[in-house]
Design a protein around this nucleic acid. Sequence first.
DNA 1: GACGTATTTCTCAAATATGAGACATGAGTT
DNA 2: AACTCATGTCTCATATTTGAGAAATACGTC
Lengths: 186, 186
Amino acid sequence: MNNTDTQQKIIDAAIAIFNEDFSAPLEKVAEKAAVTRRTLHRYFKDRNDLVMHCERDMQVKCRKSMSEAMNSSTAPLVQLENMLYAGINCGAKYSFFNKIHSRHEHQHNANNEACAEYDAMYENYKSITLQLQENGQISRHLTVEWILTLFSSVINAAVQAESIGSIARNSVKKFAWYSFSKGIGM
Amino acid sequence: MNNTDTQQKIIDAAIAIFNEDFSAPLEKVAEKAAVTRRTLHRYFKDRNDLVMHCERDMQVKCRKSMSEAMNSSTAPLVQLENMLYAGINCGAKYSFFNKIHSRHEHQHNANNEACAEYDAMYENYKSITLQLQENGQISRHLTVEWILTLFSSVINAAVQAESIGSIARNSVKKFAWYSFSKGIGM
DNA sequence: GACGTATTTCTCAAATATGAGACATGAGTT
DNA sequence: AACTCATGTCTCATATTTGAGAAATACGTC
């Protein structure tokens, strides 16, 4: 196995584990990644280094998916739908990225690259929402903040449903979009 | 301060902390509860004991709120709305209770009191949902599982929105019910 | 103001988590 | 078969977390 593969495998495992339990011992990450703790430490100096790589990875992957969704159309509604699917596709990467940046402990710093990315996503999203509200395509009495919170929540729900496997994989996205779009008054 | 007050204060703090970070050091719980770690240990034998007390507390509180909601009416729709509000009122207690019982690691045991309670809530909820679907009051093409997942997610969203304070406190419940009810095709 | 109880402070031993060196192993390359 | 590179194994030092004893202190009550 290529060494960048291993590194990525560890990062993916870490994101999955830390998303559920941020202070979980690195042993669990190693276990999930099917490597030794010793190997993990060869790739990442320490816990903090690993977390930073996770953040970077999430930032890059989420940005990529989200901008693809944005570019998929000029119609805000289509963009929004594809952004929802993009979030679901990113899975834990999206969930954790959001969680970490909306935590209380996390004090925001616009100079930080990941924070800037989060801001950018937020702004993109906000402008689409406002446009839809102005056009009267979605409810005007909901706040943009609530709509964003709901957006993340529905993605979480979908990701969770997929991982539990309680719902047919191909139905999840349809359900998610149905519930979200109706939920914002479409 | 009464000693049961202190115990409860610690449990509440623990639920809030563990909900966000399950393996967080007990120091953080003590800090949140505004007591010394030494005091915490006088009330709880060890970490596991504390977690068990948290589970028990969540189980009792959630059951109480949920059964009140159930008894508030015989109309499924009113029951459902009040169950949503009940969940939001329980805050982290509801979120964490759900999280813990729907985790992968957690293997379910119907003999366990808390698990039984979770099952009971689930069944209650399920029967209401099915009734509404039969009556044609909500969409029939969504599965009960998805509706439950969405229910929990919307509660999480509301709880989070309240704790962040990004949305006026009295609006949150209205938004949540609006989005949830529309989201299930009402 | 004395008394009992809860809590804090200080301290320390045990348990667990972290990080890394030294060497063995094993798969793939030439 | 000799070589390389990634990974595993075994080991150990250090750091952090955990749990509890002992004495000091705060707090309400009588």
